[in-house]
Amino acid sequence: MSSTEKVASAIVELEQARQPGAEKAAGKSVTRAVPKVSAWTRWRFGLWIPPLVTFVLLGIAWEYVAHSNPFVIPPLGNIAESIANDPSAYWNNLLVTLKEVAVGGGAAIVLGYLLAVLMCEFKILERALMPVVMVIMVTPVIAIAPALVVAFGFGMLPKYIVTIIVAIFPILINSLAGLRAVDPGTLDVLRVVDASRWEIFWRLRLPGSMPYFFAGLRIAIPFAIIGAAVAEFVAAGEAAGLGAMISIAASQANLEVTWAGISMFCVLGLLFVAVLTLLRRRVLWWDNHGRAPK
């Protein structure tokens, strides 16, 4: 048993011991001895203390640099103050960017997976489209973005398109690999009983592709945020969204606003990753996360 498993099982025991129904169901009123678990194990200090220490040390280093070189980075307190002074401006810009990431990223996820399914089922589509995909993928999005702004104006559309372009590839490539990576033995078992293509897709390929799809999501979501930021930088005239806000603030050497915007991006990214992790745990409970089985 690994140490994390030990911790987990100790916690399970603890929870069971705490269950009020346990004694009642057994018809006992005796106070059961709670298994002795040290505070270290009980609060899982080993899990959250080390990263906490890292963050505290980083914070101290930051403050040190900020106070000795005020024109490089602002003190953390000033950043927080900047947000506290005008929360609605930050909130509105955050919402604009969030919308771009959600719409553009969402469209990339749906389109990417659909395209992967079509390419998996119809080889000719893969032959026809993959070269185009490659051409777009190797072109830096920062180079395409200005052209898209010229073509589609300063509204939301070019931002969605840039976000889709960056986020779609990891979804498409990973999902296609996943749809193809089904166990050949299971495929044979199904073919021998004349399972239809749809049945093979639904029962085998779709669920089997989920670990790959989620691996793709893990890359695509930060990419979508990058896409939204890049599009906003390029179309700064619109002056909406965290990227535009950062771009304007930086040009005016307004470090507090710049870093406040950056920290908003951090929060946005972490939020999406957290949702993704929870979702993955629900959908992919059967996948052992690359850990050794059993």
Partner: peptide
């Protein structure tokens, strides 16, 4: 095949 006349046991269990 259409009538499901045959059952296959592959080399690996190939379970889902």
């Amino acid at each position: 095949i259409r009538h499901k006349t045959m059952g296959l046991v592959p080399q690996t269990p190939a379970l889902l």
